[in-house]
Design a protein around this nucleic acid. Structure first.
Length: 277
DNA sequence: GCCCTAACCTGATTGC
DNA sequence: TGCAATCAGGTTAGGG
């Protein structure tokens, strides 16, 4: 499931592969992938050239030469691939951008959860309001400790749920939330406003380092993630909490347990991650 | 305004 | 063996 490091990996791949290429035709086998009028979408990207690929949180922003931007969210299993023109679409190919250099950009999505919408560049929030509400990126520069102390003091939600809220911090998903809470020795059900400043400082350091480390490993492949080159990520070999239910905690040996927090599967160590510490 | 739940969707896994 | 039920998960819409 793509979280920030996976989306960043896709962004870097797309940047290498499609910048400077022009869209000559668009086929949409699954129109529901497009939010709004799919015909207007097609018209809006025709004959435009990809100029830049940006990312904000888990959103990809494909910049076009005609002042349009494709806002693309991969959700669970969306992925892009570049194929020779004429390649038969896959079972789950939802949109095909034919390019002037005899290649085609496919968007494939097994669960059909991903969405894309066409925006006027600079006004993306008009068609994707959630984009405007995203919290800071989990980086040293953007995610400051004063911001965290302020924002985290205002919520009684379980910290696990809070970390998944894109309006608080952009880009963290279920996998990295479990990872950073384990690293920080924080129980996932701890009310957010009960965390001490020291705990927040530790959590902040771990979030920033973990996301950077995952990007370096090209993301995590749990179900089906692959980059535009069809390569899987390598970070799943580095996971210390997520998916390790029943296995010994890497710190203390206690079997890891799985619970539901805010409807999400949550794996943690019942010994290391003490509640209300 | 906050919180919780259902819905979206399909492949994989589990249960009978 | 085969079918049905359940689970996974990011985001949004709707209800309390």
């Amino acid at each position: 499931m793509p979280e920030l490091p996976e989306v960043e990996t896709v962004r870097r791949g797309l940047e290498k592969l499609i910048i400077g290429t022009t869209v000559t035709a668009v086929n949409v086998p699954y129109p529901k992938v497009i939010t709004g009028d799919s015909q207007a979408f097609v018209t809006g990207v025709m004959q435009a050239t990809f100029t830049k690929i940006d990312r904000r949180g888990k959103y990809l922003l494909l910049r076009l030469s005609n002042q349009h931007t494709i806002v693309s969210h991969l959700r669970m299993e969306g992925q892009y691939s570049v194929e020779p023109i004429g390649t038969t679409p896959y079972k789950h190919t939802e949109i095909i951008f034919e390019l002037a250099d005899d290649r085609a950009l496919f968007y494939n999505d097994t669960r059909r959860f991903g969405r894309m919408v066409l925006a006027t560049t600079g006004h993306e929030s008009l068609v994707s309001p959630s984009l405007a509400k995203l919290g800071p990126e989990p980086t040293e520069a953007d995610l400051t400790l004063p911001y965290m102390i302020n924002a985290f003091s205002k919520s009684k939600k379980p910290i696990k749920t809070f970390l998944l809220d894109q309006n608080q911090i952009a880009g963290i998903g279920n996998i990295y939330a479990d990872e950073v809470l384990w690293q920080s020795k924080i129980h996932p059900e701890t009310p957010t406003n009960q965390l001490s400043k020291l705990q927040l400082a530790i959590l902040r350091t771990n979030i920033i380092a973990e996301i950077a480390r995952a990007i370096k490993h090209h993301g995590t492949t749990v179900h089906s993630f692959s980059n535009v080159f069809g390569e899987v990520g390598k970070f799943q070999n580095e996971l210390e909490a997520y998916g390790r239910v029943g296995e010994p905690c890497l710190r203390c040996g206690t079997p890891m347990v799985k619970i539901k927090v805010g409807q999400r599967g949550t794996t943690f160590c019942p010994f290391c991650q003490v509640k209300f510490d």
